[in-house]
Simulated scan of single mutants.
Amino acid sequence: MSSDTPQNLSPAALRQRIREGHHRGNTSGYAQGFVQCNLAILPADWAADFLRFCQLNPRPCPLVGMSTSPGDTALPPLGDIDIRTDVPSYRVFRHGEFVEEVHDIRELWRDDLVVFALGCSFSFEEALLADGLDVRNVSMGVNVPMYRTNIPCQPAGAFAGDMVVSMRPFKAADAIRAVQICTRFPSVHGAPVHLGDPALIGIGDLSQPDYGDAVTVAEDELPVFWACGVTPQVALEKARPPFAITHSPGCMLVTDLRNSRLAVL
């Protein structure tokens, strides 16, 4: 395998490609071995309530890092990062409404913005693959399917809403193994929140994800659902801050932090 394949790219090399506009798609399977993060960027006067929302809802919003002061564009503990350029695609919200998707936020940057980096399920996918499990979105080469549910989050200030989940199908024995593996990774969503009938958590049709791409689910497989870092986007829609930026679903911030550091042995 070539050293510049997606799997073997270093996080710094991948971020450089993203910064230069050479990669704008999802990051699943890239820079294997390293933590990928969901992103939420908010004005400072909204940051305390959002931090509390993350603390109250650690499964969908596991906090990995945040900026040390408003206006900082770097996240030193996570790598040599410029948060304005190093994510393949960003979503911009105004008063809770999604208004545009962009690949660079330098022109939108403000001195009062606070950055939150949240754990991502792409990190535990590596552990599932290492155990020989078929992670369907990876084997199909598509973005993981994500769905809005009726599972309520704990509110904090104006932030509230229902959880978003990601789904990967497994045979029953493999689903049990997936639970065992992911329990070791509480900083990147941990164990699944639901197995089986999607209607029980408010999902009507697995072939129509709210975000990402549909994957095949065989008759002898169970859909397995994990809390997803797109949940903050639902909370932003509810809270309606005047301005906010997130990652586009599947397009993550790839850090220099190793996945192994997040495992609980």
Score class of each variant (00 low, 15 high):
65 G>V: 00
206 L>I: 05
69 S>G: 01
11 P>D: 04
204 G>P: 02
248 S>P: 00
15 R>Y: 14
221 E>A: 01
225 F>C: 01
98 F>K: 03
44 A>G: 00
109 W>G: 03
102 V>S: 04
254 V>H: 12
128 L>Y: 11
233 Q>I: 07
163 M>H: 10
249 P>N: 01
260 S>A: 15
36 Q>P: 06
234 V>A: 13
221 E>R: 00
69 S>L: 02
217 V>Y: 01
260 S>M: 13
77 P>I: 09
169 P>Y: 05
135 V>R: 05
213 D>V: 01
37 C>N: 05
198 P>T: 14
208 Q>W: 00
63 L>W: 05
4 D>T: 14
56 L>M: 07
103 H>P: 03
50 F>H: 02
33 G>F: 14
103 H>C: 13
36 Q>G: 12
210 D>L: 01
224 V>C: 14
121 S>A: 10
92 V>N: 03
5 T>M: 05
1 M>L: 12
181 I>N: 04
133 L>Q: 08
61 C>E: 03
80 D>F: 09
129 L>R: 11
131 D>Q: 15
96 G>Y: 05
67 S>K: 06
122 F>I: 12
204 G>W: 02
241 P>G: 03
154 Q>K: 12
91 R>D: 06
211 Y>H: 12
172 A>S: 01
222 L>V: 00
165 V>D: 05
200 L>Y: 04
162 D>W: 01
262 L>F: 12
85 T>A: 14
224 V>E: 06
2 S>G: 04
228 C>G: 00
189 H>N: 13
11 P>Q: 06
101 E>C: 05
147 Y>D: 10
213 D>P: 00
214 A>P: 02
11 P>C: 09
147 Y>C: 09
86 D>R: 03
67 S>F: 04
45 D>E: 14
217 V>A: 01
95 H>Y: 05
265 L>V: 14
155 P>D: 03
165 V>Q: 05
251 C>D: 11
46 W>N: 00
126 E>A: 14
172 A>V: 01
216 T>G: 08
85 T>M: 13
241 P>S: 03
225 F>R: 00
184 R>E: 15
187 S>T: 08
254 V>R: 11
223 P>I: 08
19 R>M: 11
